[in-house]
Each structure stands twice: as structure tokens, then as C-alpha cells.
Write a protein that binds this DNA or RNA. Structure first.
Length: 429
RNA sequence: GGAGAAUUGUCCGAGAGGCUGAAGGAGCACGAUUGGAAAUCGUGUAAACGGCCAACGCCGUUUCAAGGGUUCAAAUCCCUUAUUCUCCGCCA
């Protein structure tokens, strides 16, 4: 949610910023008009209420003195009717205001490249170029490796659930578990995050605060006849942990990490990444969430992105970092870095982490605030989130990058202890 | 899932249509006292929205779980929902 004052006081700038994100100017103009109307109605209503409160006091006074208050009561009946009418109108206006306001994306940070699509994203850095040739000439895609070894079963996933579901069998299941344990251990012991296990179902208010609702309902699984949704990412329960609370400045920054399944309907992505672990309805992800003061949030974003990259470096998986353009950023983000891992069989980099600073966008929707030590003033915190990392995609990257000519897969050194000493994954069959 | 009880500010807790943003404690902050501390005394102790202000602030409206209703007027009466506790059932 944007700060309405920004739109009121600096309309041109807000409109221009939103235009970069594909919002039409008419929409903002309408918002400006209706916001003005809203404030007029509020003033009207409040004036009448003030009058009513005063007369009500007089009536009480008279009653106590056993005087007649008939006349005042009579005139107040009219005023009350008037107040009701104005409040009803106000309600409609407020609904339209929030319909528009809650549908507007966050304003991009000034450092974000302006563009319309992912083609306008800008590469920032690369790591591990020298490792890229490792698998040799005709690298197999990870789903073939997994099926050939008998450790990934997409067929039965589709039979028992639906397409885009999978069974991990034997060494693959162990690898997935090894990976998220390794990631959690690194983030908690080395990077200072507090480990959390969250609810996997959350209510509408939580989905609203992080920005998924109301605009992106079709992307998630909702439970019928319940005010509950399967989380599309642990970002939702982690960021909502302090919803409607006021922290003290000394509490910040807060670092949270959680491993959780993530559920996504993938509506509208039919035909994309239909095979393999890249795009499933259910996958594990180790999530990083930070709450920070506004003056520190961009430093925290850099650090968080490094924390995610560090996992790939420890796994010796080549990657690059890109900054998303204004057209490719998520709804809530002010700035987003994507980390893309090298996938040999596709001869390209694929997203494995996305680290965003939403500034006060989510905090405003969820009333996540803190009190300044100095002044005692209350401000919105900045919230950040990033994957550290998507576990299924990491499994895919390991299978492809660590495949060997005989069809087996070497286990990355750092994972061997987590795999009970296993150094090579060979056929389960 | 069935039956009953509860939900008031940071916490405990009064209040039972008008004098209640809310008694009384506790906590916390500041000040006095002290060599310093404890004790004691004094003062203060919410948020949202709207208006005014360069700013410190000031004014108004709202808020006693949430939403709706009755009334000139609701913490207080009525309805719906949520949460918590107790008993029964079921269950890892």
C-alpha cells in the first residue's frame, strides 16, 4: 500500500513512478479525486458528530437536573439521520479508495533500471564461470538424471496428485533434506538468522499484508469454506509475525529464516517448464525475512542477497546476480535482486533466489511499526524477503552440474556430512 | 463436533445506558529526596484518521476482541463472528 500523502502532495512524481511500473495515469487521477471527496465527507461527518457530542452532553446535564430535554432530543434525531447518511456515502467512497489503492504496486527505488519486461533486467555480477564446463559435452537435464537413477518420480506424482507434483525417492529425498538442513544451519549459525517453523495455512489478513491479496488470489490455493490459504512462500507467515505490533527501535533489525513447503497454483504458466523440478505446485524453500529501519534497509538487502549467494558458492554452483527492471518486479517490491543458477542442460541461468526490499509497502498494509528511541515517534518498519534458497531448484542444479559421464551424480563436498557420508548418488533401481 | 464461561489500556482489574479515554493497582519514563541505591513523594504514560503549524505542538473524530443493530446518547442492551478457558467426544 502506498502512502496516500505521497499521492496528495507530489502527485506528478508518484504518477511518473507508477507509470514505470505499468500503472495508467487515469487510475491515479481517479484515486486523487476520490481521496479528496473522502476527506470532505470525513470533515462533514466529524463536524456533525462534534455537534452531537456536545448536545448529548447537554441532554445528560438536563436529565440529571430533572429538566426537560425533549427539544434537544428531537433536533438530534435529525442530526443522527444526517450523520448516518454521510457515513454511508463515506463507506462507499472508502471502498473505492481502497480498491484502487490496494491494487497499486510499490514505487521502484531510484536505482532500479526502468524497463517493461525481463529483457530489461540488468546483470550485476557472475560467479563460478570456471566451473561451467564441468559436466562435459551433452549434459542431461535434471529430470532425466533423476528418473534414470530412480530418485525422482514425476509419473506417480501426477497419478497420485496432479501434474507438477513429484515424489522424491531415496537419495533425492535425502539430498533435499541435506540441502535445507545445510541452508538453515548456515543461516542460523553463520548469518545470524533466527530459525522459525511457521503455520503453512494463513488467513486473509496475512495474505493482504504481504501483498498477495486481493490482487493475486488466482495464484494460490485457498481452503474452501475457510478463511485460510496454503502459503505460497514462508515470506507470508514470517513477515506477518509482527503484524499490528509496535517494536522498539532496539529490536531492529530482525532476521528470520524458515524452511517450508510452498504452494502455488501456477495459473497462467501452462506449457512453461512442464518437466522437472523447476515449476511445481508444491516445493520446499528456505526463506529469509528481515525487518529493518528505513535508513538501513538497503544495506540489509545487500547483505541478505550475499547470504543467498554464499550458499551457492559453498555448493560450488555457478550463478549470476541480476537486478530486476521496473517492469519485471513483483507487486510489493521496491527493488529486487534475482540470483540465477547455471543449468547446463538448458545452457542458461535459472532463478533460484529472489531478494527484495519492499520498504514500508507491506508494513503499511500490515501495520508493522517501531518506536524511535530518540523521539518516541512511531514509524513503519521496512520489510525484506529473499529465498535462501529454493530447495527443489537447488536439487535440480546439483543434479545437472554434478552429473558424471556414467550417469551418477557427485555429492557437493559440503553436503557429504549431511548425506551420511554418501559421496556419489547412483541408481536406486 | 456438543455444553458452559470469558474477552476492558503494557499487565492486573473496576465499571452494568449519559458525569468513562475509561476508577484503583502494577509496570515503565522523567523529576524531587540520597554520597549512591532501596523506600517515599510528584508528574507523565495509547493508536488510527481528518484539520491547522516551518516546527514543538494544538484542535476534532474514532477506538473497551471484530463486525452489524437499537438509541438523542453504548464499554454497558440485542445479533453475528473470532479467540481463550472448563467439561464431553475424537485424535498425532
Amino acid at each position: 500500500m502506498l502512502d496516500m500523502k505521497l499521492i496528495r502532495n507530489d502527485f506528478e512524481k508518484a504518477a511518473e513512478q507508477l507509470k514505470k511500473r505499468g500503472v495508467k495515469k487515469e487510475e491515479i487521477t481517479r484515486l486523487q479525486e476520490i481521496d479528496k471527496k473522502r476527506r470532505e465527507l470525513i470533515q462533514e461527518s466529524e463536524q456533525l458528530k462534534n455537534k452531537r457530542n456536545q448536545v448529548t452532553k447537554e441532554i445528560a446535564e438536563k436529565k440529571r437536573n430533572k429538566e426537560s430535554a425533549e427539544e434537544a432530543i428531537h433536533s438530534m434525531q435529525e442530526v443522527s439521520k444526517e450523520i448516518k447518511a454521510i457515513d454511508r456515502e463515506l463507506e462507499e467512497v472508502e471502498k473505492e479508495t481502497s480498491d484502487i489503492a490496494t491494487g497499486l504496486p510499490n514505487l521502484p527505488h531510484e536505482s532500479v533500471p526502468v524497463g517493461e519486461t525481463e529483457d530489461d533486467n540488468v546483470e550485476i555480477s557472475r560467479w563460478g564461470d570456471d566451473l561451467i564446463s564441468r559436466p562435459g559435452d551433452n549434459p542431461k537435464p535434471h529430470y532425466e538424471i533423476g528418473e534414470d537413477l530412480g530418485i525422482l518420480d514425476f509419473k506417480r506424482g501426477a497419478k497420485v496428485a496432479q501434474s507438477r507434483f513429484v515424489y522424491y525417492v531415496g537419495a533425492a529425498a535425502r539430498l533435499e533434506r541435506a540441502l535445507y538442513n545445510f541452508m538453515l544451519d548456515t543461516h542460523t549459525t553463520q548469518n545470524g538468522y533466527q530459525e522459525i517453523i511457521t503455520p503453512y495455512l494463513v488467513n486473509d489478513a496475512s495474505m493482504f499484508a504481504t501483498g498477495q491479496f486481493p490482487k493475486f488470489k488466482e495464484d494460490v490455493y485457498e481452503i474452501e469454506n475457510e478463511n485460510l490459504t496454503l502459503i505460497p512462500t514462508a515470506e507470508v507467515p514470517l513477515t506477518n509475525y509482527y503484524r499490528e505490533e509496535i517494536l522498539s527501535e532496539a529490536d531492529l533489525p530482525k532476521y528470520f529464516t524458515a524452511m517450508s513447503p510452498s504452494f502455488r497454483s501456477e495459473a497462467g504458466s501452462a506449457g512453461r517448464d512442464t518437466r522437472g523440478l523447476i515449476r511445481l505446485h508444491q516445493f520446499h524453500k528456505v526463506e529469509l525475512v528481515k525487518l529493518a529501519t528505513p535508513e538501513n534497509s538497503y544495506d540489509e538487502l545487500e547483505k541478505m542477497t550475499r547470504d543467498a549467494e554464499d550458499i551457492l558458492e559453498k555448493l560450488e554452483l555457478p550463478y549470476r546476480r541480476i537486478v530486476l527492471s521496473t517492469g519485471d518486479m513483483g507487486f510489493a517490491a521496491a527493488k529486487t535482486y534475482d540470483i540465477e543458477v547455471w543449468m547446463p542442460a538448458q545452457d542458461t541461468y535459472r532463478e533460484i533466489s529472489s531478494c527484495s526490499n519492499t520498504e514500508d509497502f507491506q508494513a503499511r498494509r500490515g501495520m508493522i511499526r517501531f518506536r524511535r528511541e530518540e523521539s518516541g515517534k512511531i514509524e513503519y518498519a521496512h520489510t525484506l524477503n529473499g529465498s535462501g534458497l529454493a530447495v527443489g531448484r537447488t536439487v535440480a542444479a546439483i543434479l545437472e552440474n554434478y552429473q558424471q559421464v556414467d550417469g551418477s551424480v557427485k555429492v557437493p563436498d559440503v553436503l557429504v556430512p549431511y548425506m551420511g557420508g554418501m559421496e556419489v548418488i547412483s541408481s536406486e533401481k
